[in-house]
């Protein structure tokens, strides 16, 4: 039933890497992709329809106008954004030096650090929250009692995404040569960071920032269990009162996280494609 053909990810130069990887029957392909595609599109379309649904199937935008008129909508959104910005800032401050250091000084431990960045997956965020409550209860209110604690924890919880984004960005440039070239020209670490590393890592930094920020806007467990009314927590409260408003809000939230995510995914895959243009050009023949 299934046939395999060549690898598109392979390096350019190996000769016969055109045509498909698996020659599954056309019907199979269409059926699978259509069904899966429907599964992902129907909820979005339904949400849109639902959010505009007035009494007796009429069309109304009242769900949206009411939301935008709610003070809490703006204040929770603002809180989430604040937490997000703080988290992004902390993440970059912590990770850029680490990733760069690992690549330059500990290249052999790269995998180890990558694995460490996945550790947050081992501890479910509900458990992290409980741990935060039990262990940080005694800390001064300024940390524990304010949303600062959210940012501090979100840095950890978003690590699997943010670390990978930065790591692969660093991987794709010849960091060691850049650093050595910079050093041989007599620039110190600060200047090196400012003029050599940051410009070259811009893509990875933007990617990590967007992923982290999106994570912060959507995070619910820690925020709600620590009793901070962030945007998602507000969303659940709305949901208990007015379903169509909650759906409208969800749709907005989804779109607002998807758009930047889509942009970085596309930008990243295009960059990857550009690097291997010869192969892809070959592919066009088939």
């Amino acid at each position: 039933m299934v046939t395999i053909a060549p690898d598109i990810t392979s390096k350019p130069g190996s000769a016969n890497n055109s045509s498909d990887v698996l020659r599954l029957g056309r019907p199979f392909r269409y059926i699978v992709l259509t069904l899966v595609g429907l599964f992902f599109i129907v909820p979005i379309v339904s949400s849109a329809r639902f959010s505009f649904l007035g009494n007796h199937n009429s069309f109304t935008i009242s769900a949206y106008t009411q939301l935008f008129g709610t003070a809490q909508f703006w204040s929770t959104l603002f809180l989430s954004a604040k937490v997000g910005v703080g988290t992004v800032f902390l993440t970059l401050l912590l990770l850029i030096p680490t990733v760069v250091w690992v690549h330059v000084r500990l290249p052999k431990l790269r995998r180890v650090f990558e694995a460490a960045s996945l550790l947050p997956l081992v501890v479910p965020s509900v458990v992290v929250t409980l741990g935060v409550i039990t262990s940080f209860r005694g800390l001064p209110n300024i940390i524990y009692g304010t949303p600062v604690i959210l940012s501090l924890e979100y840095v950890v919880l978003a690590l699997p995404f943010s670390y990978r984004a930065l790591d692969s960005a660093v991987q794709s440039i010849d960091l060691k040569t850049l650093v050595e070239a910079g050093q041989s020209l007599g620039s110190g670490w600060i200047k090196l960071l400012r003029y050599v590393l940051l410009p070259n890592l811009r893509g990875g930094i933007i990617g990590a920032s967007i992923l982290t920020f999106a994570f912060c806007l959507g995070e619910f467990a820690v925020a709600s269990l620590l009793s901070f009314t962030t945007f998602p927590v507000f969303l659940v409260q709305v949901g208990q009162l007015a379903a169509s408003q909650a759906v409208a809000l969800s749709l907005l939230a989804l779109l607002f996280t998807w758009i930047p995510l889509a942009v970085i995914t596309i930008v990243f895959s295009q960059r990857r494609a550009k690097r291997s243009t010869p192969v892809l050009d070959d592919l066009e023949i088939s």
């Binding site: 992709l33 992902f40 129907v42 909820p43 979005i44 339904s46 949400s47 329809r49 639902f50 959010s51 995404f161 992923l211 999106a214 994570f215 959507g218 995070e219 619910f220 998602p232 969303l235 659940v236 949901g239 379903a243 909650a246 759906v247 809000l249 969800s250 749709l251 939230a253 989804l254 996280t257 998807w258 995510l261 889509a262 970085i264 995914t265 596309i266 895959s269």
Partner: peptide
């Protein structure tokens, strides 16, 4: 590229908005 981009996006979805969009569905 549509599926790759879509997967990258949807894999990061979840949480509350997802719940409500299924409620709507």
């Amino acid at each position: 590229s549509l599926v790759t981009a879509g997967s990258g996006v949807f894999a990061n979805t979840g949480g509350v908005p997802l719940a409500f969009s299924f409620v709507a569905t």
